[in-house]
Amino acid sequence: MNRPARLVTAALTASAALLLTACGSGGGDGSSSDAIAGADSGRKPSAPPSAPAGAGGVGRPEIELSADFRADFEGWTNSDPKLQAILNDGREELRAKYAAIIEADPDSDAVAFYNSEATLATARTWIRQFTDKDNSIIGEVRVFEPQVHIAGTGSGVLFYCVDERRASTKNRETGKVVATPDKPESLVQYRLRLDKSGEGVWKTTSLTTVPGACR
């Protein structure tokens, strides 16, 4: 995938920002960038903080974030149950990676649960760019403007925006905090393709990020 340097830079330089793009979750052929024309953006009250256990007949992992970090999902509801299922699993894929960084667990089972073989290795590499330097994340991100539809191939296509400007990295040993710059590039558009597994889970099979694509 095209790996923007935003989050990678945060892990490699002490002066960089948090920059929580999911550039470590790449993979696939880029089909996640399919047009969203006609998609229901679902501007409704925020979705609950975690996918319901057993949704779709599968016991989904419980994902908890620390008191020092919050991810606010705005408008993550849709009147179509099929589209809501894609929103739920797309949301939990992101939350699983945040939790893995906070818990210093790049081999998190929850990350594996929501990622396909095509994206799992790079998701874990992205998480290790924090954990290998003993960094965690604090503050908050706003996840908004979800756009979702089912492509003609049967894959789910999900676009959403993440505002990272109130989030920071924090070193566990030194306590040093590095804030995300207040710049347009800190608003990132995520573009996912998800495919439904035999167990009914919409696993991420392709993910790209476009810094500065959201306002």
Results as ranks from 00 to 15, higher is better:
residue 33 S to M: 10
residue 75 G to A: 07
residue 57 G to A: 11
residue 184 P to Y: 05
residue 129 Q to F: 14
residue 39 A to R: 02
residue 36 I to P: 02
residue 196 K to H: 01
residue 72 D to P: 02
residue 126 W to T: 09
residue 83 L to I: 09
residue 184 P to T: 08
residue 65 L to P: 01
residue 127 I to M: 08
residue 152 G to R: 13
residue 152 G to E: 15
residue 12 L to Y: 04
residue 118 A to C: 04
residue 190 Y to N: 15
residue 55 A to H: 08
residue 185 E to C: 06
residue 76 W to T: 01
residue 126 W to Q: 13
residue 13 T to S: 14
residue 56 G to R: 04
residue 180 T to D: 13
residue 188 V to F: 11
residue 112 A to S: 12
residue 47 A to D: 10
residue 156 G to T: 01
residue 202 W to G: 01
residue 2 N to Y: 07
residue 55 A to R: 13
residue 3 R to A: 10
residue 90 G to I: 02
residue 148 V to R: 11
residue 141 V to Y: 10
residue 164 E to H: 15
residue 62 E to Q: 08
residue 20 L to E: 03
residue 3 R to L: 11
residue 171 N to D: 14
residue 194 L to H: 02
residue 113 F to Y: 06
residue 55 A to W: 08
residue 207 L to M: 11
residue 148 V to P: 09
residue 142 R to F: 14
residue 201 V to R: 00
residue 155 S to N: 13
residue 118 A to W: 00
residue 96 A to H: 04
residue 205 T to F: 00
residue 109 D to N: 03
residue 50 S to W: 00
residue 1 M to D: 05
residue 52 P to F: 05
residue 2 N to R: 10
residue 187 L to Q: 14
residue 4 P to Y: 04
residue 20 L to I: 09
residue 68 D to N: 11
residue 156 G to Q: 02
residue 34 D to V: 06
residue 106 P to I: 08
residue 147 Q to K: 15
residue 175 G to A: 08
residue 39 A to E: 03
residue 88 N to P: 00
residue 197 S to G: 01
residue 132 D to H: 12
residue 65 L to Y: 01
residue 167 A to R: 09
residue 63 I to M: 08
residue 54 G to L: 10
residue 136 S to P: 08
residue 201 V to T: 00
residue 83 L to W: 00
residue 112 A to R: 03
residue 24 G to M: 03
residue 149 H to A: 14
residue 46 S to I: 09
residue 122 T to H: 07
residue 67 A to G: 02
residue 36 I to Y: 06
residue 213 A to R: 07
residue 79 S to I: 05
residue 212 G to A: 03
residue 116 S to Y: 02
residue 14 A to S: 14
residue 27 G to T: 06
residue 160 Y to I: 06
residue 139 G to R: 13
residue 114 Y to R: 01
residue 11 A to C: 10
residue 154 G to M: 04
residue 168 S to R: 12
residue 178 V to K: 09
residue 78 N to E: 06
residue 130 F to A: 15
residue 157 V to S: 07
residue 189 Q to H: 07
